[in-house]
Structure formats: structure tokens, C-alpha cells
Design a protein around this nucleic acid. Structure first.
Lengths: 256, 256
DNA sequence: GCGCTACTGCGTATGCCGTATACGTTACAG
DNA sequence: CTGTAACGTATACGGCATACGCAGTAGCGC
């Protein structure tokens, strides 16, 4: 834990590796592996079976070496996770260009971000260890920041919007991931099948107590559609996205 | 894993326990413990040393029994986590009342929620397993839902606002928790001390590449204050909160 | 009052995990 | 040619959650 940082810059080791700053190959026998193959194998495992299935021994087996061989390429599991995250994030898609306006740009950014996280659900389970520093996260940051040029917001406000939007995307994906996972654990059913049961349970549990607002909601009749988890449509995601961007718009108009 | 649900209702076992639906005490010797003591001990450990320190054996030691004794009171670690979460959430503070308007109500709710999470940082690390079902989360839901009465939003919209706001609070606390933890791991310094280093690193790393928006931000000069982690002031939290609530306001006005 | 039996708390054991360390092997630097 | 740094590996350690079996206890039906 004490050797977390590279001698060079004080960077976390995995981040330094991701920027391509690595020590000499040196004198010994030729390396049989490279970091990229390890990272790709780990991502494949995580995609297929979740972050819980990513153990050093599992990844090593997948790559075809012994467990400890990985430690010649990666400082430890934490490093591996950071590298996985950066690799999976990838370069963000270009975006609609500045002519389309900040809102279209951020919508595009948020949807692209959501797509990546949805494709790699384990990403939302890795705790954020630092502000964006790895190469691809900086690219994503650049893209989003670029959308806000010319809006009249100052640097701090732009960052605030970014953080909020980023947090929204993450928590939105995280929620559907958690629910889907819980549903899978509960007999393989998907959420659409489980939702009515949820509302029935909540009705039962709140029946005896003092929950006027919840009961009023039930009385209104149409609660069956919330907490959706549609593959592509994602009405819920768009709803919250609009909420955050409406708030941003209000801020921008106030500044203008 | 297959015995997750109680026979009664199909509830997750921990949730059933939290609502007080438990099987008969029965015939044997008197129980030496109760669930509440276990849960409280676990919370104390998590508060003091983080969720990582909460192991069954650790909690058992703290309570003064053997590890396996806990399994007579709790189905497994997952159960314990659910119970911890509900206990730590507690009953929400009453709120300013309906006369103060929905916005003041939701602000109060979000700040109270944030306070709880900040007091128990480990809570944001427990994956959400279901929509609100445990007793206290239902109370929190009731409180927030009550704020939105008379706004003209339909049930689905209310839930959407709630989910978004809840996600915002969680991700905001999660971010500061992650950063604080990473900072603590990096030599015990706090974030305020580390932030200049972060910006310096980012400047170096982006110097060579094509990052116009980031460079423009640096050029503007005042980036030193973002990503704050103030104990009480929490300017960042209020910023994002205002963003989300401004969005909600826009929605409500559109419906009116 | 008595024994049956459900229930208690606990010791042991299993199979994971991350990773420290030591070892024989390889192939470049001198 | 030789010394040695870097290679891949085997073994070992401490920690984890938890399945299982055990001896003792206390309430119930008789």
C-alpha cells in the first residue's frame, strides 16, 4: 500500500501505466505477456460474470499463466481495476460539434457515457479513486467541458455541472444494474416481471402504517411503469437527464 | 443463496427481519443476544474503520461471541448489511411541513439524507439491492413523496424526481468519500492538500495532447476550488442540489 | 417429574481470496 | 564468457464467508 505511487510523478501506478510511462524492459528473458492482454481478459471476465468473478487467479487462468505471473505486469489488483476502467471507457465518440449547442452536446455525452457503463456494468462498482487522471477519462472530461464553452459559466460552475451530470449517469446505471442483479439472484426473473410483486409488497407493508403520500400514489393507479429497465428506450434515463439539463439551462440563463 | 426469501411474503430475509416479522423464539435455551446489538456493533465498526473492516468474525469479537454464533441471528453477511443500512438510515427528521412548498421540503430532505450518509460513509458502498422496502427507507420515501403533493406531477414523474434526487445525493457523498479515502491512503493528507497536486498533474499530462477546453479552463486561472470537501459548508453539494431542483422546477412549471 | 426435542452457542473445516517470498531459469550487458 | 536483472512459478500465509456437527439447555407433552 505504501508503494502506490510511481517514482516519476507521484501518479498512482496504474494511471502512470495507462499513460504509457513505464520502466525499461531491461535485461531478463523476453516477456511472454503484455499488460493489454491481461486487462482485456479481465474485462471479458467482468463483462460476462461480473466484477466478483474477477480474481487474480481467474484472470491468470484466462490468460494462460500462473496467478503470480500477473504481478510482473500489474502492481496488484487495484492497479488492474484502474487499467480495466480506462481501457473499457475508451475514446468517447466525437459528439455533434459546437454548432449544435451545449445541450445537444451534453445529451450526446451522457448517452454515450451511459452506453459504455451499460456495456460494462461492473464499472459502476469500482469506487472512484481520484478525479479524472487516466488518459481516457481525461478525454471524456475534455469532451464534456468543450460542450460548455461559450455558456458564460466560470470554471467552477462548469466542473460542478460535469460532476453532477457524471454522477447522474453513474447512479442511473448503477440503479438498474443493482436491480437487475438482485432480480437475477431471485430466481432468474427480470425486473419487468418482478415489479408488480414489488408494488404489491410495498402496498402490504405500508397498509398498516401512516404513509399518506405513498397511499395516494397507489390510489392514483398508474405506478406499474416506474423503475423501468428497458434495453434501449430508457425513458427513465431520459427523464432524469432532462431534469439535470433543465437545471443547467436555468443556471446558464441566470448567468446570461 | 437460494433461501434468500422468507416463506411468508417473498421478502428478502433481512427486510422481513427489519419489519419485525420473525419466526417464533421457540423452545431452546434463552438467547444470549439480539439482532439489534449485532447490528449496532457492526455499524460502529463500519463508522470507525469503514465497510472493509466489517467481517463476521470482527463483529462477533466486538459483541463478545464466536463468529458462528452470529448466524443464529442473521442469515448471512448480506442480511447484516441490509439491517445495518436500515438501522443507520433511521427515521427521517420531520421536515418543514407542506406550507413551506415542495422545494424547501426537498432541500431539507436532501440535506438530511446527505447528513446521514456523511455520518455513515459506508452506506454508499452497499449496492442497492431492491427499491425501498425496509421500514426506514419507506419512511424516507414517504417524506420525499409528500413534498411533491400538489405539484401537478403524476406518480411516475414524482418517482422520477425522487430517484434522480436520491441518486444525486448518493453520488455526491460517494464522490467525496472516495476522494477522502484515496487521499487518506496516500499518506494521510486530506484532499485540500492534495488538490493542487492534482491540478498540476492534469496540467502536465494534458500539456502534450489536444485538450483545448481543459487548457482553456486552466488559462482562466481559478480552478483550485473545485472538488471541495468542506466539512459543513458543502458548496459543491448545494450547487448540484440547486441544479436538480431547478430542473424539477422547470418540469413543474411546464405541467402547470 | 420426566424425557423428548428444538434450539442454543461454538469448534472445526472447506474453499475461496490477495499477495509476500523464494526459487530455478533465461538472456542481455559488460 | 560471465554476472545479474528480470522472467515465470510454486509455495505459503493470513483473512474471508460459511457449511456442518456437536454438546448442552430449557420448555413442552405426558
Amino acid at each position: 500500500m505504501a508503494k502506490q505511487r510511481t517514482a516519476q510523478n507521484g501518479l498512482p501506478a496504474g494511471v502512470a501505466a495507462a499513460w504509457g510511462l513505464r520502466e525499461r524492459p531491461g535485461r531478463g528473458p523476453a516477456r511472454g505477456l503484455d499488460v493489454a492482454r491481461i486487462v482485456r481478459a479481465a474485462i471479458a471476465v467482468a463483462d460476462a460474470e461480473g466484477l466478483g468473478a474477477v480474481s487474480m487467479s481467474r484472470v491468470a487462468t484466462e490468460v494462460g499463466v500462473s496467478t503470480m505471473a500477473l504481478y510482473r505486469y500489474v502492481e496488484g489488483k487495484n492497479d488492474l481495476l484502474i487499467l480495466m476502467e480506462d481501457e473499457a471507457a475508451g475514446t468517447p465518440p466525437p459528439g455533434p460539434g459546437p454548432g449544435a449547442g451545449w445541450r445537444a452536446g451534453l445529451e450526446h455525452w451522457a448517452r454515450a457515457h451511459r452506453d459504455v457503463l451499460t456495456r460494462h456494468l461492473w464499472m459502476v462498482r469500482i469506487p472512484i479513486s481520484t478525479p479524472p487522471l487516466s488518459p481516457h477519462s481525461v478525454e471524456w472530461m475534455e469532451l464534456a467541458l468543450g460542450c460548455l464553452r461559450g455558456t458564460g459559466l466560470d470554471a467552477e460552475e462548469k466542473l460542478g455541472v460535469l460532476i453532477t451530470l457524471n454522477g447522474y449517469v453513474r447512479s442511473s446505471v448503477s440503479l438498474t444494474a443493482d436491480i437487475a442483479e438482485a432480480a437475477r439472484g431471485e430466481g432468474g426473473a427480470d425486473w419487468e416481471e418482478l415489479e408488480p410483486r414489488y408494488w404489491r409488497l410495498l402496498t402490504q407493508l405500508t397498509a398498516a402504517g401512516d404513509f399518506p403520500a405513498i397511499k395516494e400514489m397507489f390510489a392514483s393507479g398508474e405506478v406499474d411503469t416506474a423503475f423501468e429497465e428497458e434495453g434501449e428506450g430508457s425513458a427513465d434515463f431520459e427523464f432524469g437527464l432532462a431534469l439535470v439539463l433543465d437545471g443547467t439551462q436555468a443556471l446558464i440563463e441566470r448567468r446570461a
